[in-house]
């Protein structure tokens, strides 16, 4: 590739600038969190006496342990189920090509564009009538439904690339459809599955709307929903709010940094298919 030095340097400069703009909000949040509680610090000033204790206080005030547990339970409720259902339907539409698979698939495809606000009102009454209001099920079950379009489209895209010969061979060996699916195709779908899993984890963990509408108790919400409640309760104390917000970010940031390669790949593919 031909590039001259000047271009490379403009590139570096620009990239550095963009990264700075991306990072500054995090830095601002961090330094603000270190100011004495109840003060109203200005801008990006490093406090004279950094209050590291704010993080401990915010951890206690937000009962962070409980929140982590709650979000984890919701993720455990949503992600495996959505993965299994999405994979099975993707298999049916993409590989088995059941009669009417195009229509079925299209109905899911149109769901990809659906804004959650479009169904939140009836969903509230439906969940209430099911007696699930204020329980984690109120978030888990609708989220599985709402993630179906993406999961099905994603997994179908994987299964249409699988050669039919593979299945023919398995059938000749006497495998039923279920064995074909479970023994042959699921192991081959692992890369697609794990990327989907990462995306679903992230979207569940960060989901806000259902949490604030359907669950009043922050201890039964997702992390993002709990953060909204935290702002409601501690918005009166800016440094504490910032400390709490940072703590709530830590789990996703940690998971992201550990699995960053997979994450970036999954997110890029995810938006292409979404």
């Amino acid at each position: 590739m031909i590039t001259n030095r000047r271009e490379a340097w403009t590139g570096r400069l620009l990239l550095g600038l963009l990264m700075a703009v991306t990072v500054v909000p995090f830095v601002s949040l961090f330094v603000t969190a270190l100011h004495p509680k109840g003060t109203y610090p200005s801008g990006l000033s490093w406090p004279d006496d950094p209050q590291w204790g704010n993080f401990a206080d915010a951890f206690r005030a937000a009962s962070m342990g409980e929140l982590l547990l709650s979000s984890s339970l919701i993720v455990l409720g949503v992600v495996p189920a959505a993965l299994v259902f999405g994979t099975m339907a993707g298999f049916a539409f993409g590989h088995l090509r059941v009669p009417g698979h195009r229509i079925g698939f299209l109905v899911f495809l149109l769901g990809l564009t659906l804004p959650f606000e479009g169904i939140i009102t009836p969903l509230y009454y439906q969940v209430r009538d099911m007696g699930l209001l204020n329980s984690r099920w109120a978030i888990i079950l609708p989220l599985i439904g709402l993630f179906m379009p993406f999961s099905v489209v994603w997994m179908r895209a994987h299964f249409v690339t699988m050669p039919d010969d593979l299945s023919e061979a398995a059938r000749i060996d006497g495998a039923g459809t279920w064995q074909l699916f479970w023994r042959v195709h699921v192991p081959l779908a692992m890369p697609a599955l794990s990327s989907l899993g990462i995306l679903l984890f992230l979207w569940t963990w960060n989901h806000f709307l259902l949490a604030i509408v359907l669950v009043d108790d922050p201890a039964k919400r997702t992390m993002a929903g709990a953060l909204g409640a935290f702002q409601g309760q501690w918005g009166t104390d800016i440094p504490l709010l910032c400390a709490g917000a940072l703590l709530i970010l830590v789990p996703t940031l940690a998971v992201f940094l550990i699995f960053q390669r997979r994450f970036v790949a999954a997110l890029l593919q995810g938006s292409i298919k979404g």
Binding site: I103, F105, L106, L109, Y125, A157
Partner: peptide
């Protein structure tokens, strides 16, 4: 999102969603 040809199944999909709409027709409340 650009999967397959859209027009023919679109009509079918609309029919399906129409049925879904009819599934609940008593007045709310």
């Amino acid at each position: 999102m650009a999967h397959g040809s859209i027009r023919r199944p679109l009509r079918a999909a609309l029919t399906v969603s129409l049925f879904a709409g009819l599934a609940a027709c008593s007045a709310p409340g």
